[in-house]
Amino acid sequence: MSLSAQVRLRLGELDLGVDLDVDEQAPVAIVGPNGAGKTTFLRALAGLVPLDAGRVSVGGTVVEDPAGQIRLAPEERGLGVVFQEPRLFDHLSALENVAFGLRARGVSRNEARARAEAWLERVGLPQVARMRPRQLSGGQAQRVALARALVTEPAVLLLDEPLAAVDMSARAELRHLLRQELKRYPGVRIVVTHDPVEAAALAERLVVIEEGRVTQDGLLVEVTAHPRSRWVADMVGLNLWEGTASGTSVRVGADATVVTADPLEGSVFVSFRPNAVTLHRRRPEGSARNVWCLQVQELNPTGDRARLRLGGPVTLVAEVTAGAVSELSLADGGTVWASVKATDLVAYPV
């Protein structure tokens, strides 16, 4: 079973054009900034938002194709959705909520009950079976919602920011449960999130959507090591420059050229970790060839370390120890010399 989607639609300000093929090998996380179209993409897969053009097929069956006048209703697509809010049915008990999808499909009352009970047990909540959704905590409600979606064994499981509306205190535990269940679930699994920690915990493949387009798609380790957009670089906490390479020399600005370890030609990205930046009071002597005199635009102490946003011929974020901040008497608006070793700069073609 696999999912193949070419989604083209306009909704308000959003112009969505996303192609995605997912098999059942591993969970996929869709990440991206707010308003990028992640949730709309998921809703389009589920049949809750119509496509303008494109096609969605599940396991070889076309479920939507505007050109071919095909549009299966959500209930005919055989998929499960966990929404950001639990969306439990208030007038039904937790158990009846979980059994709902089975009953809707004509499963007998007794069998539906038994299977729902087994799932409540599996998500660690056998004791809430008879409780109403109002009596559940946010984390419990979302567990019930997960059980409700999984009990029908959908071929495709879609999760839309499943942890976003859950209390911080309950989030780690729920994330652990989600990770377990997603790992062993035998279908196509797609989870939308804006949280990199969540994405890393739940998925092996990362798809980045920005302004309605896929900007990056690959294995988690690949994407986080080689960001291709400002948003991804910020998400994984790397500095990112775009430039033109000529051998090991990369022009990254009007008056800035950096030296990297690996020779490349043409348009490239250059990324490096903030803690690879060394700061000096005077221009450093020696082998480092990537040296600039920069202005401190922002200084954020975090515990025993500090992050500095520096600007000048180049813009970068540096992370240094709190000791270095006082030693160099760094402050907002001051200037400082910054250097990065060529071997710490990772260059890769655009």
Binding site: L48, A73, E75, G78, V81, F100, A104, T152
Partner: peptide, 25 residues
């Protein structure tokens, strides 16, 4: 309407949704 949407993704037909989700609401 979010409950009705959830019901639809759980495989409930329009008539079933109306009876078990919309009407009680």
């Amino acid at each position: 309407r979010r409950g009705e949407e959830a019901a639809a993704t759980l495989g409930a037909s329009p008539a079933y949704r109306f009876r078990r989700v919309t009407l009680p609401a």
